[in-house]
């Protein structure tokens, strides 16, 4: 019996591989998605995932009470300054404490216009005292750029006054600080003094803020 040459065997092998692969492709094309033996095969070619994210306007205020504690007014002085920015190195006079500023953080998914109002000092501290606030960049200076931020010391009034025109929301550090400054007149009476209503309001910037 005549033996087949190596070349012929190679040709038969190539034909066999071509037939096997071609047959498999033909079966897959013909049967498509109906082929139950194949698991995990998508029955449709595309899928649509719908996700609707609701708008959220939210703020966090670091403290709900500014507490300066108890202290004595400076003898002989017309007024005694007390503020939230004071620290151990630059302390408030007497035993007045340093409560720190109000940190307002944007926790939502929209830019916010932050405003503030409060009670007039004559109402709760008595005549001759002053009561002011000033905005300051929070931990992230880009959250409220200087052009949008009121950094000047501003007297509290009954009407809402702008602190930051556009507090952004890009991450968890979108923050603006509000410092409070009292200049307590020496005619202030020796009783407990409270401003019962400082309001910090956040309005979503649905248009230009």
């Amino acid at each position: 019996m005549k033996q087949l040459s190596d070349r012929t065997v190679s040709l038969f092998l190539a034909l066999a591989i071509f037939s096997a692969v071609g047959g498999l492709v033909a079966i897959l094309i013909e049967t498509g998605g109906d082929l139950e033996l194949l698991t995990g095969l998508a029955t449709t070619q595309t899928a649509i995932v719908n996700v609707t994210i609701q708008g959220l306007s939210a703020i966090t205020i670091s403290q709900s009470n500014i507490d300066f504690g108890t202290g004595t007014l400076t003898a002989g002085a017309a007024a005694t300054p007390v503020n939230t920015t004071a620290n151990a190195a630059n302390a408030n006079p007497s035993t007045f404490s340093e409560p720190g500023p109000l940190n307002v953080t944007n926790d939502g998914n929209t830019d916010l216009n932050i405003t503030i109002n409060g009670t007039l000092p004559a109402v709760w501290l008595g005549a001759g005292s002053t009561y002011e606030w000033a905005g300051n960049a929070g931990v992230e200076s880009t959250s409220c750029p200087a052009t949008n931020l009121t950094t000047a010391r501003t007297p509290f009034s009954n009407t809402l006054t702008r602190v930051c025109a556009n507090l952004t929301f890009s991450d968890g550090a979108d923050q603006v600080s509000i410092h409070i400054f009292l200049n307590i007149s020496n005619s202030a009476t020796a009783v407990e003094h409270n401003d019962p209503a400082v309001l910090i309001r956040a309005d979503a910037c649905t248009g230009p803020c």
Partner: peptide, 26 residues
């Protein structure tokens, strides 16, 4: 001149965090 010492009393309070949100806001 009389030296007037005035004591301002503020009641100590715990630090409360305020955190309010509204959704949807528009």
């Amino acid at each position: 001149r009389l030296i007037i010492l005035i004591s301002l009393l503020f009641i100590l309070a715990c630090v409360d965090v305020l955190a309010i949100g509204l959704s949807p806001y528009s």
